[in-house]
Amino acid sequence: MREFGYQQVSDVETAVATLATSADARYLGGGTNLVDLMKLGVETPELLIDVTNLPLTDITETADGGVLIGAAVRNSDLAANPVIRQRYPAVAQAVLAGASGQLRNLATTGGNLMQRTRCSYFTDVSKPCNKRVPGSGCPARDGEHHNLAILGASEHCIATSPSDLAVALVALDAVVHVREGDSARAVPLTEFRRLPGDRPDLETTVEPGALITGVSLPGLPIAAASRYRKVRERASYAFAIASIAAAVEVSGGLVADCRIAWGAVAAVPWRATRAEAMLRGKPVAIESFAAAADAELLAAEPLEHNAYKVALIRNVTVELLAELTGVSR
């Protein structure tokens, strides 16, 4: 591991200003991803700015009936929070579906949104990777890609975002609050992370050196009946091969409103807007759910070893929507 300096900060302004003084500094949250990547040689910062002592550790109710989750709120505290559990159950379920009790006690809300892909070529410095070393190539396309993207990928990168939390957040209209230089900005989570295109090394739409200060969820009645479902290769403590956060509001046998987002299918938490548009106003029925999933999956570009994900995410979507609306299969 490269040697590095370490500094604690107690206010957001100092954190951002300190990062700007270094060519190669990183914010340190729980460290569950960053410290691991430093051990692997993927990350080689010269300075770590510990942001866990910033006054961003509260979950507060907002005037619009929503909540503001501080960036330094640990995953465990987020999942245990009564307001989150009652009004945004998919968020609590998504957090609890990820990692382990030990990791959730360390990992932070902001860090979760910034975590890197677990693509095995990205985490192995002996291999080419366009995300880690721009222009070096992507062996995943012809190699090990069984858990990589089927949506929104490019010839340069097919990595997936591993976050469970972000899938639930993006389904429920979350907004990311960042500090960039001297100014604060609010970015909808749907616009926060970038698809790879020809620059897979650029992962977010905010300025380099921006600090996430919090994530807000609006007051959203439909969210109280939201649910998160995760499919993985073992019963616990594994990344998703497909996941979904969804909520449905039914009126007179028709879908009055819905929220659907998918995980483990793209470089971003994938808000399934085409499926949502297709489903609104339709009868609550298996055929409607399948048609909605198919509408979203028209854009899918599966590869040899991840084509199973198309059927998997479709079936998981139908199953969860049926469960949420009480339709039997």
Partner: peptide, 27 residues
């Protein structure tokens, strides 16, 4: 494993279980 995947390094930090292999001592 030294990568937060096995739990053999689990200790309590301020009373909560954590993977001590992923916590920098200075932090």
């Amino acid at each position: 494993c030294d990568h937060g995947q096995c739990g053999a390094c689990t200790v309590l930090l301020d009373g909560r279980r954590v993977n001590s292999c992923l916590v920098l001592a200075v932090a």
